[in-house]
Design a protein around this nucleic acid. Sequence first.
DNA 1: TATGAATGAGCATTCATTCAT
DNA 2: CATGAATGAATGCTCATTCAT
Lengths: 220, 220, 220, 220
Amino acid sequence: MGAVKNKRMPRAVREQQMLDAAVRTFGQRGYMAASMDEIAELAGVSKPLVYLYLNSKEELFTACIRREARRLTEAVRSGVEPALPADRQLWDGLRAFFTHTAQNPDGWSVLHLQARTHGEPFAAEVTVMREEIVAFVTQLIVIAAREAHRDPSLPEREVAGLAEALVGAAESLAAWANATPGVTAKQAATTLMNFAWSGLNSLMAGTPWTPPTETSHTEA
Amino acid sequence: MGAVKNKRMPRAVREQQMLDAAVRTFGQRGYMAASMDEIAELAGVSKPLVYLYLNSKEELFTACIRREARRLTEAVRSGVEPALPADRQLWDGLRAFFTHTAQNPDGWSVLHLQARTHGEPFAAEVTVMREEIVAFVTQLIVIAAREAHRDPSLPEREVAGLAEALVGAAESLAAWANATPGVTAKQAATTLMNFAWSGLNSLMAGTPWTPPTETSHTEA
Amino acid sequence: MGAVKNKRMPRAVREQQMLDAAVRTFGQRGYMAASMDEIAELAGVSKPLVYLYLNSKEELFTACIRREARRLTEAVRSGVEPALPADRQLWDGLRAFFTHTAQNPDGWSVLHLQARTHGEPFAAEVTVMREEIVAFVTQLIVIAAREAHRDPSLPEREVAGLAEALVGAAESLAAWANATPGVTAKQAATTLMNFAWSGLNSLMAGTPWTPPTETSHTEA
Amino acid sequence: MGAVKNKRMPRAVREQQMLDAAVRTFGQRGYMAASMDEIAELAGVSKPLVYLYLNSKEELFTACIRREARRLTEAVRSGVEPALPADRQLWDGLRAFFTHTAQNPDGWSVLHLQARTHGEPFAAEVTVMREEIVAFVTQLIVIAAREAHRDPSLPEREVAGLAEALVGAAESLAAWANATPGVTAKQAATTLMNFAWSGLNSLMAGTPWTPPTETSHTEA
DNA sequence: TATGAATGAGCATTCATTCAT
DNA sequence: CATGAATGAATGCTCATTCAT
């Protein structure tokens, strides 16, 4: 059941096996519905050993979140070449992101769904990672503006909202790509680049969309 | 303890009280952590009555999802005037969406977080609503293309991806706006229109972003 | 399996059945070794019902302590006639005490052994009762001194120590009487009266035992 | 972490370290709440070693009881000079007793509380020691009676009860003295001598307390 | 219509104990 | 002599759900 039941292995190895099993179980069943029994069995060890190494369900879940967050950011980071132009960096990062989430659906479920849905402590853990990514995207937008010779054209608050929207769109597209058969990481990335980069460009070209003057639309 | 303990009231009213309590509890505690005890107490009725009316926790949750989905789509629908131009419709719809989610955080939590996190049956329930909204947005994009006299310029698959991205971005921005103090529905809508509509326009103007020709992708 | 499995009885009755079972189990197995499963089975109910009514093992134990303490003090109190002379009151009280402990060995075990051995909160609960009894005895000693026309002869600290010793001796004798076949409550009470009352009398007669002058007994 | 982690020391020494740790842990936590893990850590050895030397938790506890019982009786025995008069022997024995229990609260807790509270096998272990002490006290009472030239005045059963009461009072006072700040071993011994010896003397002077003739015991 | 009484099943956690080295 | 690795068996507690009234 799970891995071949190898006895007596060093702690570090066992711990990874346990995290593998936990990510899979948490990702598929959800945090609360996942039972420590199931995780232990899937890891091929007894429950007490899981507790000996990872202390509690909460700590185990936290360890999963941390590992998956690290893996995801590393995947994105190592897919990007900082010397290249901003759009190329974004394109590469998105491809790495969509590829990684497609290959690790359970890890992505843990990060995107489970961790956000089960209390502040867990959500905070993901927020750290997410902010790192948003910061990366924000920086790309700023670089792009500079490359377009329009440095101060965008107020900071606006840039933050744009980065947030871009990351949010990416997260949603990841789920969509995973759920829609036949949509590859490359296609998802292309769609998003089309959607986002064009918008950013025309924004920076100085032609933002302007809201209509409020006439009589207060819902009465 | 929630409502004043009124005896003998018509079934329809009681049911709504129960759903109110359930949405609040599910939204705040999460599906699994919410206990039928708590919901019954918050609704001011006894547990057997909840079962009499709503049969099981799963059906109760489903009923919550359906009610909140209906309320949300109705809010968006009634915020939009079909005769107006596409961008105005999108703008109005987004404002209605951000306003409604900000005013019903528990309902939005049920739809956006809880329902997606606890198994296919529930997720499917939201998917129905989501597809309705995506269809609405898709249609707006098509109209916009037509308005720009560029009917067939965008392949169907591409339009679907764009609508998906736009809706995903909106969902993320809703969470972001709810969590970031000082961000109003209008501001969130403006940010998204800037981001999306400009992108769509330049897309339709025939200048999509093109991926770099794949030459050597072993990042060495 | 304990009582005949009567279904559907009012809460108050069930609670007493549970306390009966709990006192018996705690008294015989000890607090920690007693399992809630065993108590529930002995009470003839399911475990959840025990929790529904008594909340936790700790609260259940506390409830046992309180009930048994109340019963014991009431037994002693109702065995004593406040109008009678002090020695008669003490005699009657001791007899009531030995009789009650002999008839309720589990309750006495809970009070005397278990409660004192498992943490301050529980011990404190018994201390309240014990202090009440010590106070009663102290008062008897004072009355006795007054009856012997020797009011101020005993310093307060000394009286406290004497009452403590008397109560302690009674507690030990209770265990002894319970464990030694053929020793009745009356005999235990007589022994203790002989031991204590004579001592008190000669103390009050002004001839206390005096320690030897310390010469060379410091254990080097 | 308890002792400095010395490797390779003779078995006898290691065993004492383990017993030290065990007595401390059992005395403070109680038999059941004490975990073998905690004991091993406090002793500075690994758990398997504890099992290698002491076989099981029960045997370890028994070993603790035996060692502490031996230490206590030895302390009392070595505090007493058999050539001295009976009252002096009792006085010296009590002082040694109160001193030892005050200096070894954990050991005393093991003997007086824990061992008695966790099943016959353990209680029996203490009973052996207790009977030795009761025998010693009994003998002192007999000697005292002889010294007072009243050899056969007290029936054996009565003497046994008196010794039991005296020892019981001493045990209670030990706990009282340990718990009441400012009460020394000497004071506790004095209080008890006053209480007991005077009583014994007047008993032997031929004036026992006599129960009232039972007339009408329905407390109306 | 409405509820007080009751439970089967499951879950996180802990502990005494033992191999294999 | 000494230990890191591992587990079977409980235990306290909770929850969704139902019955009898």
